[in-house]
């Protein structure tokens, strides 16, 4: 993930210096993952797409400079989370999952974290969790953020994130067991 982060920051710098192709590269790198993360919150594939587009647009408009590469991705997900929450405020929170299959397919085909069927089932099960559990599990297990980075994205303390992760894992386990997974699988 560090390599990806370093590359992302380098691409973003290149874009800020006028390289138009660098943006497309960035979108390729983070578009799907960001959309899936947004989907965890907004529970709508089209809305998740909008959130992703708005997140990158905000990145372009603000032209923030990063001294440390690791901060780029954290910042990107923090914006995505804020945009998702804004969307929920505007459109309401009570909708069922729509277009989960689109999100699972991803723009880049089978490339990415859902290449394996098991992970797809896991992500699908994840969507049945409350939003805070989804966010923290997604960031931790699908996007590989460290606890410190999750703290920055969610604006929570380390202890709060650990507690959230423990409760989220427990809740997910119950869902997976009900969904046919065995204790060994989990």
């Amino acid at each position: 993930m560090t390599e990806c982060t370093d590359r992302s920051a380098a691409l973003y710098r290149a874009f800020l210096e006028g390289d138009g192709g660098a943006l497309e590269e960035l979108v390729k790198l983070h578009g799907d993952a960001l959309t899936r993360f947004a989907y965890c919150i907004v529970k709508d594939d089209a809305a998740a797409e909008d959130v992703t587009a708005d997140t990158f647009a905000a990145l372009i408009v603000k032209r923030k400079k990063f001294r440390e590469d690791a901060k780029f991705r954290t910042y990107l997900y923090a914006i995505a989370r804020n945009r998702s929450i804004d969307y929920l405020r505007k459109h309401g929170n009570s909708r069922s999952l729509t277009g989960l299959e689109n999100v699972l397919a991803g723009a880049e085909g089978d490339v990415g974290v859902f290449a394996r069927e098991r992970n797809e089932a896991l992500y699908a099960s994840l969507q049945r969790l409350p939003a805070p559990y989804k966010e923290v599990l997604y960031l931790c297990y699908f996007d590989g953020f460290s606890v410190k980075q999750i703290c920055r994205i969610l604006k929570k303390s380390v202890k709060q994130v650990y507690n959230l992760l423990a409760r989220a894992r427990s809740a997910l386990r119950r869902i997976l067991l009900k969904g046919g997974f065995s204790h060994e699988d989990i």
């Binding site: 497309e24 979108v27 959309t35 797409e49 990158f56 372009i60």
Partner: peptide
Amino acid sequence: MKTSEQRTEEILRRAEAQRESAA
């Protein structure tokens, strides 16, 4: 889901709209 190219175009369009809105 959209392709990266489509997404980039959409992003640039939205960025322009955000700039205008910000101004």
